[in-house]
Amino acid sequence: MNAGFRVVEVQDYAAALPALRAVRQAVFVQEQQVPAELEHDLAGDPLCRHVLALDADDRPIGTGRLTPERRIGRLAVLAPWRGRGVGEALLEALIARAKALGWRRVSLHAQTPTVGFYARHGFLPHGPRFLEAGIEHQDMQRQLDAPNPVEDAEGALAALIGAAAGARRELSIYSRELDPGLLDRPEALAALRRLATSGGRSRILLQDPQTPQRSLAPLLSLAQRLPSGFEFRAIEEPVDLDYPSAFVVNDRDGWYFRPLGHRYDGEARIDGGARARQLRAQFLPVWERARPCSEFRALGI
C-alpha cells in the first residue's frame, strides 16, 4: 500500500479488462475525447503487459501497458488521484518490468503537457512533435542500461529536469555563463525552484559571471528571491578556465555531461551512480578553488 493505493501487474488480461477499460474510458474517451475505437485497441491490447493501480477498496484508479514494440502506453490516472504519486508508481512499475524482460530501451508517446513528467523519470525527447488522435504528442525514449544521448536543446532541457528532480538535497552545475537557452528556460527555472523550495540548493560554478549579470539572467532573479537555494562561485584558476566541458550532477545518481560546454549534445542518465560519483569528485576541488561571486552580492545572493 502506498498513500492509499497499490500497483499490481495484470496476470489475466480478460479478467482485468473491465478495470482497464473503466480507467481508460474515463480519461481518454470521456475526458480527452479520443474516439473509442482508437482507444480500445482490440488487436493490440491482449498482446501487451498491463499494470493497474487500485485504491484501498481495490477499485481501479490508474493503468498503463508495455507493448511488444517496447513502448509504454495508455498511462492514465483518474482525475481525483492525480498529483498523489499514482502516475509515478505506474511508470516505475512499467520500467521495472521492462528491465526484468531484458529490454535495453523503452519509448513512449507523451502528450505535450506531460513531457516534463517523463523527463523527471529519465526520458528524453526525440524528433518533432506530432498529432495522435488529434492530440499533440512527443516521442520520448530512455536507455535502460546505458547513458541517453542528448542531441539538441529539447533533450538538454529534459536531461537537466531529470537531474534536478533526482536530487536529494543538492545539484552541482558547472557552466560557462549560465547557459543561455537552457538555464533561462521556464521549465529549467521551475525545476531549480522546486529543489530550492523543498530545502535543497544548487551550487553553480561559472567561468564568466559577468555576462549573465549584464544580461539580467532569469536564474539570478530566481536566486535573489530564494538566496538559500543557490550559491555561485567564479572560476579563476587557468587550468579550470581551460576546461572545455560542462555538466550537471546531483547528489544521487543523475547527471548530464556535455563534452563541449557551448553545445547541447552530450549524454545523460538518472541512474548512473559511478559516473555521478566521478563528476562530483571532479566538481568539488574546482568549487573549493573558486571564489564567491562578489558580483552578485548587490542582488542579495
Rank of each mutant, 00 (worst) to 15 (best):
H121F: 03
D58P: 08
A15M: 12
W255C: 02
A223Q: 11
G199S: 11
G300V: 13
P147C: 02
A153P: 09
L42S: 14
G261H: 02
R104C: 13
E9M: 12
P285S: 04
Q11F: 13
A268C: 05
P128W: 04
R258G: 05
P68V: 09
Y13T: 06
F230P: 04
G64M: 06
L78W: 10
D240V: 07
R169Q: 08
T114Y: 15
D152I: 05
E136Y: 10
T112H: 04
R201M: 12
D45V: 03
I204D: 03
Q30M: 13
Q278F: 14
R297E: 13
G83F: 02
G127A: 01
V7P: 11
D251H: 04
R97K: 06
M1P: 10
D242L: 08
R258L: 02
Q143T: 12
H40A: 14
A53F: 06
A163H: 03
E69Q: 15
R225F: 08
R129Q: 06
T197I: 15
A76W: 14
Q33S: 06
L124F: 03
L144E: 04
A146I: 07
L20A: 15
G116D: 05
G73L: 09
Q138S: 01
V29C: 05
D208S: 14
P46Y: 13
R185L: 08
A79P: 07
L20P: 15
D152L: 07
A56E: 13
R185E: 11
L144K: 02
R105H: 08
V150H: 00
R275M: 11
S294Y: 13
G116I: 01
E37C: 06
V150M: 00
D208I: 12
A196Y: 08
L38K: 13
D251T: 09
R71K: 14
L144R: 01
L101N: 11
L20T: 14
G4F: 14
P35F: 07
A217N: 15
L101Q: 14
G134L: 08
P292I: 10
L20V: 15
D179S: 06
V86F: 06
F123G: 01
G162K: 00
F257K: 00
C48L: 10
S294A: 15
L157D: 00
P60C: 05
A164D: 02
L101K: 09
A110K: 02
A191C: 09
A153W: 03
A159C: 01
V29N: 03
I95F: 06
G102E: 03
S198V: 13
N148E: 02
E88K: 09
D253T: 08
L78H: 08
D208L: 15
F283W: 01
Q224D: 15
E288T: 07
R291D: 14
R297A: 09
F283C: 01
F247C: 02
Y13L: 10
L52A: 09
S215N: 13
R277W: 05
E231R: 07
L195G: 01
R263G: 03
L192T: 13
G102N: 01
Q278V: 15
R185V: 10
L284P: 12
N2S: 15
R233D: 00
L17W: 15
P244T: 13
Q278E: 13
R185I: 10
I135P: 05
L108F: 06
L91S: 04
A234G: 06
L260W: 09
Q207W: 11
E231A: 12
D251K: 03
G62F: 10
